[in-house]
């Protein structure tokens, strides 16, 4: 698969065909969109195998809930929303299981390849701390933070997706960042 496959202009048509019962169209969607989904999941997990498992779980959900997608709207945002929920659920579960926080690499927030072992260790500690810290966020703060800071979605687009005024989104984001930075300091985790 080529990274540019995600630029395929016809994923809406594929999704409509899949929704009409074309399993081949579904396969082409999986093959063309999984790279994006895995990269997104890696931002949450920093572990490619976990990212692969989450992506797989998202595709099963898409298969089961295809009738919930409105063919009149673009498929990709819906797909990413389903995937975000999958990743957020995993993040919440992981945050509850302290042993997993230290056993897995953690949220992937630095360059994944060619990393120095010390840097990797620091990344793991940071990731574990961040997962602990996000438990302090409200639901709204978590939604804004994951969309803007984890997935690097443009703030204006994020406000539209969350049906939120731009100023409200900015204030929520700033509060979430402050809270996270404070928590990381409390946990003595160096960002």
């Amino acid at each position: 698969m080529n990274p540019t496959d995600r630029e395929m202009p016809d994923h809406d048509a594929l999704a409509r065909a899949f929704r009409a019962g074309d399993a081949g169209a579904f396969r082409r969607l999986v093959e063309s969109q999984s790279r994006t989904l895995m990269a997104t999941a890696w931002r949450y997990t920093a572990d490619w195998e976990t990212a692969r498992d989450l992506t797989q779980a998202t595709w099963v959900k898409v298969w089961e809930r295809a009738d919930r997608w409105d063919p009149g709207r673009p498929f990709r945002p819906w797909l990413l929303a389903v995937h975000r929920n999958t990743c957020l659920s995993w993040l919440r579960r992981a945050a509850r299981r302290r042993e997993e926080l230290t056993a897995t690499p953690g949220a992937g927030l630095a360059a994944p390849a060619g990393e120095h072992p010390e840097a990797a260790l620091g990344r793991r500690e940071f990731a574990a701390g961040l997962r602990q810290a996000i438990r302090r966020l409200s639901r709204r703060q978590l939604a804004v933070f994951t969309l803007v800071d984890l997935e690097q979605t443009d703030q204006r687009e994020a406000a539209g997706r969350l049906n939120m005024a731009a100023g409200t989104l900015r204030a929520t984001l700033h509060a979430a960042r402050r809270k996270l930075a404070g928590q990381l300091r409390k946990l003595e985790v160096e960002p």
């Binding site: 990274p3 995600r6 790279r35 994006t36 895995m38 990269a39 890696w42 931002r43 490619w48 992937g108 927030l109 630095a110 360059a111 994944p112 390849a113 940071f126 800071d149 984890l150 690097q152 960002p191």
Partner: peptide
């Protein structure tokens, strides 16, 4: 740390 990962680089690293 959060903004340090470029989306295109990350997709290429999958």
């Amino acid at each position: 740390r959060l903004a340090g990962v470029d989306a295109a680089a990350l997709e290429a690293a999958v």
